[in-house]
Design a protein around this nucleic acid. Sequence first.
RNA 1: GGGCGCGUAGCUCAGCGGGAGAGCACUACGUUGACAUCGUAGGGGUCGCAAGUUCAAUCCUUGCCGCGCCCACCA
Length: 1017
Amino acid sequence: MDKTFDAAEAEGRIYARWEATGCFHAGANAKPGAEPFCIVIPPPNVTGSLHMGHALNNTLQDILIRWKRMQGFDTLWQPGTDHAGIATQMVVERKLAEEGNASRREMGREAFVARVWEWKEQSGGQILNQLKRLGASCDWSRDRFTMDEGLSRAVLKVFVQLYNEGLIYRGKRLVNWDPQFETAISDLEVENVEIDGHMWHFKYPLAGGETYEYVEKDADGNVTLREVRDYISIATTRPETMLGDGAVAVHPSDARYAPIVGKLCEIPVGPKQHRRLIPIITDEYPDPSFGSGAVKITGAHDFNDYGVARRNGIPCYRLMDTRAAMRTDGAPYADCAALAQKIVEGARMSEAEIDAINLVPDDLRGLDRYEARRRVIEQITAEGLAVMVPDTDRRVGGSGSTEPGSRTDGEMVPLVESKKIMAPYGDRSKVIIEPMLTDQWFVDAATLAKPAVEFVRNGAVKFVPKAWENTYYHWMENIEPWCISRQLWWGHQIPVWYGPSKEDFENLPVKTFGAIEFFKNYGKFFCAIAEKDMLKEARIYYGEDVKIEVAPDFNPGLAYTIEGGGLRKPERVVLCRDPDVLDTWFSSALWPFSTLGWPDQTPELARYYPTSVLVTGFDIIFFWVARMMMDGLHFMKDTEGKPLKPFDTVYVHALVRDEHGKKMSKSLGNVIDPLELIDQYGADALRFTLASMAAMGRDIKLAVSRVEGYRNFGTKLWNAARFAEMNGCRPVPGFDPRGVTQTVNRWIVGETARIAAATHAALEGFRFNDAANGLYAHVWGVFCDWYVELSKPLLQGKDAEARDETRATMAWALDQCLKLLHPVMPFITEELWGQIAPRETMLVHADWPVLPADLADPAADAEMGWVIKVIEGVRSIRAEMNVPGGAQIPMVVTGAGEAVSERLARNGALIGRLARLSGIELAGQVPKGAVTLAMEDCAIGLPLAGVIDVAAETARLEKALAKLGKETGGLEAKLANERFLANAPEEVVAEQRDRLAAALAERERLEAARRRLSDLS
RNA sequence: GGGCGCGUAGCUCAGCGGGAGAGCACUACGUUGACAUCGUAGGGGUCGCAAGUUCAAUCCUUGCCGCGCCCACCA
């Protein structure tokens, strides 16, 4: 054997062999009648690459699946990838731009989607290969992709069914609009970030120059201000949305504004002749103590305002365009390309007249929202409608003037407060989200959430750690409708076609010819899995005599076209498919059953669904886990029609952060690439590190030094095996660990049984760190440090029987270590397994050790514990007395009873070798000038004549005595306490007594040693 | 504003009612035939602070201080 394990060379070779022999296939190594155990992989983005989060997530899954596979379960680890709508589209668009190609819009949908497929084919295998490098034992023959034919069919079926059940609906709602990607996104895809913002105070003049007396009072009711005003003052952080105001709201209890409630005021922006008048209304929403107490209501651009507007019947005016280069009527700009160059994002002030209202003045049209804001502020200030305060006030108020120029204190300036505001950002685009009133598709999540909550509440689905259940409940019980339509091209296109309603179709003025505005009223929807099904439906709806066509491309102007003339009935209708695609998570939600073949009733679906464990990070509990629960329970039923959960257990792991707890991010430059670590230290080292740090409920701060440490652990294991090989330790068929006779061997058998049980229990409880750390301590601290050393005299001794037993025992004990370690460190253990001996199966399919607890021999444990303590004691003294490492010294044992004598007889040679003794002698008295090692049951003297440093030895004894004194003092006090004796459990009291007795005996011997030492000097 | 979690050795973290632990780092010594990716020995901690419960508190309770995360509509 080589001196070290060459991971770089071996890992690929070993993995290839596993794959070639079908080791990972569903049911491989399953015992007859085995229970199924199934994990579905959280599908990584198909074009992504492996990051540390994947490494952790998949290491844990692989540990579980390998462990269960060795136990003979019928295992399936179902792999696959996700099409990742926004992320992938973004990547391809960026590539197009980098390569100077035509933009997405210039290419058109079909060409662009083809380009994304191309990119998927080109880069799609990468992440799977990276998972293989990690050692992931997925059944790759079952690899799935969310846009596969089969999975797409599942998506369509789910959509159609939910639509028919009324659980998917279309509606005009305020949604989060991402101006960068020009699509709606769900609430979950919005990150609220605190930024520096400003709040402006403006005056909305009352209509017709009306006035009222404005009275302000302090907390005690004393009047602090009384003046006549012809305006109402509002505070806003978004002046550019003023043009879309539908009202000004005040709290019903706010006496300051009571006189003008119900009156009209004027939005002070734009040409005077076009300014709109809006009502002053009351609503519970405004907080009288905040700002001026009056809030402008812009229902189409603010979620709060939208609520107020809905409650009070206030109209919502959308001010901005959703697309940079498209008009809202859908007609492309003539100079589309030119605009696309000029415009960097959507959400610009609208260029269209909406609802026949000239909302946006000419000079603001087409402007970026923030440019429009600047101009609006400028105009209002110029007109004298900004609220003015003395310059000093602003400073006193701490809001701080940032205006340049010198000003004398007391000069009046516009009131602009600097304050922190929470701004919504798109989680992928990192651009500020614009709430927009648009037509979108929604899932009635609240209805689907009810059983999903119930199945966790009643324990049918368990979260580990359990604390995450609260997070789950909180979100599920306050769930909002899920916006599932995305204005993207990469994804599952919504299976809905639009046509005119029958009423419109039959009653439209026959002279009408050409386009009819599409979204005016929703018209008629045809929802079907396939176009032919849809057409069948449409024929029935419109009648056999109408010619039905489907527009090749979506164009709202052609959404439905009615041709006719004179008094004839229309003859032709053009239907048009909804251009939008579904949220990526819509397909991910089906993953546990779509990957198993649904909607077909496959054997795998019957066998492996519900799946066993889902392993995931907490960051996607809402995105993914919750939605799998909703869809799984809704669509999967047992033979009696009862809902089937998608999984039994959700194991939620932490996020991997850098060494100092920072989230790894490209911009911070603190990303640790798992593949680089694998290159450098091997996959086993990385896996072991992640497992050992996967303690529940905590972030993982990853330090490379750890990985190095566990690589060294692998080397240690390797060399232990090398030692075994060099000493002829070969596995003996039929070896019975119960039959060994040598104390050392009986002891290691017991230790092995203990670590096997501990490892199994840790994995049962998802305590990966306990499993890994326990194995580390066993292999290094017990097997290598002691068993290998203790076995040497036997292996190299003359007693052939003892030697052979030790060889067989060591081979057996090492095999058990390899098996126990295999789920965590699959490569090195597999390699050793093969190198040690020819085997019937690879380690990946070896039997998981199940060792009865009674393999442990308490007498052997006690004896080896004593031997180790003696050796450690002698070594410690040697080191402190600076005895040269090569020197052999004599040992004199005094006060030895029968038990000690026997132990010495049995283990003397062993102790002598490991403690480097020239001989062991039993005596009645410790010789003068000897250093004493105090044991509970004897005193050990090391005569170091000529070597002993009296001062050093005195110091050593004093130190040991001080430590013992502290211990005995505490124990004595405790045992003298009657209430302790009365209240503490018996075994605790007994334990304390034993400990005291031992400590006292040891102290006794130490004191004797000190006396002798003082005699000496 | 609400919720969750965390403050234990220089660093990263286990432990969570009865003897303070690991890895790395550090110090000294050491190549004895498994291993220098190593061995042996050692130093290092009022377990964030305060009060309470208990025979007993790093561990349970409460408060405070510090840090992190999630959710949330204060214009």
